[in-house]
């Protein structure tokens, strides 16, 4: 814990993540303007003291839109991770712990799911389910489930064959107790770290799908959709695309940094 505090990168990352969470759950505390009602006279203004991120073609304050968009982007990403983790962890745990034929069959299926690029898999799900934030979340979650299952399995297998598990068995500890006392605590950390890393990936995937027009319908200020909206003004109003994009980048960087710390790297 002490080393955690002595690393400035970690502190900055933690602050960014905390700020992002605050935006997600209490946007009204941070927004300076109404995210949906524009001031026509203020349209397409560059960043200034009045409009920190500038305004769009309808005179809406971009900063406030980004603040209110946090919920859509981050909650969708969170839901995606929950879906991916739930499916992946269960499959990986079953596969790794039971082993044998069950393991073989499940892992071959996972091979296939991984063979299809995850964004394509998400697109297939969206194509089947229709558009919107929830289908996007489910799509991204399913896209991530494959790699999650594989990592969970490899952790379970690693721990299951560890010497201390055999030692526990040789002492007469029952299997359920071994599972609870040894396998879970020892395989949890890498799996949690991957889940945390997956949050960053999911934010990217969700905003990419929104950018492509599959996410929450306009005028919802989802971050990817904001970037997409700004494309038409790229030559004249750079901030409309660049600032929301930069926000995504910063949040993802911070989340990944923390995830790596959980994973025990440096």
């Amino acid at each position: 814990m002490k080393t955690l505090l002595t690393r400035p990168g970690m502190i900055v990352s933690a602050l960014i993540v905390i700020a992002a969470l605050a935006l997600t759950f209490a946007p009204q505390l941070f927004a300076t303007h109404d995210p949906y009602e524009g001031i026509p006279a203020d349209q397409l203004q560059p960043p200034s003291a009045a409009h920190w991120f500038g305004t769009d073609a309808l005179g809406r304050d971009l900063y406030s839109r980004v603040v209110y968009g946090a919920f859509l982007s981050l909650a969708t990403a969170g839901l995606a991770v929950v879906v991916g983790v739930a499916i992946g962890a269960v499959v990986g745990l079953v596969s790794g712990f039971i082993g044998g034929r069950v393991d073989f069959v499940l892992m071959r299926i996972v091979d296939v799911v991984i063979a299809v690029p995850s964004i394509l898999l998400s697109l297939i799900v969206v194509a089947g389910l229709g558009f919107g934030a929830v289908p996007v979340a489910i799509g991204v979650g399913i896209g991530a489930a494959g790699s999650f299952a594989r990592v969970t399995r490899s952790q379970v297998v690693r721990v299951r064959t560890a010497e201390y598990v055999e030692a526990a068995r040789s002492m007469g500890v029952r299997w359920p107790a071994i599972l609870v006392r040894h396998v879970f605590p020892n395989s949890a950390r890498p799996v949690i770290a991957l889940a945390a890393l997956e949050v960053g990936t999911a934010i990217l995937a969700v905003s990419a799908l929104s950018f492509l027009g599959f996410g929450a319908a306009p005028p919802a200020p989802e971050w990817g959709a904001l970037v997409s909206y700004g494309r038409d003004f790229l030559a004249t109003a750079w901030w409309l695309s660049v600032l929301p994009g930069a926000v995504i980048l910063v949040v993802v960087l911070a989340v990944n940094r923390l995830a790596r710390a959980i994973g025990g790297e440096r």
Binding site: A162, E163, A167, H182, P185, N186
Partner: peptide, 14 residues
């Protein structure tokens, strides 16, 4: 009871 060769592997690190 069994005592293993590798005292680094036979004790659960957590």
């Amino acid at each position: 009871q069994v005592v293993y060769q590798n005292p680094f592997g036979s004790l659960d690190p957590t």
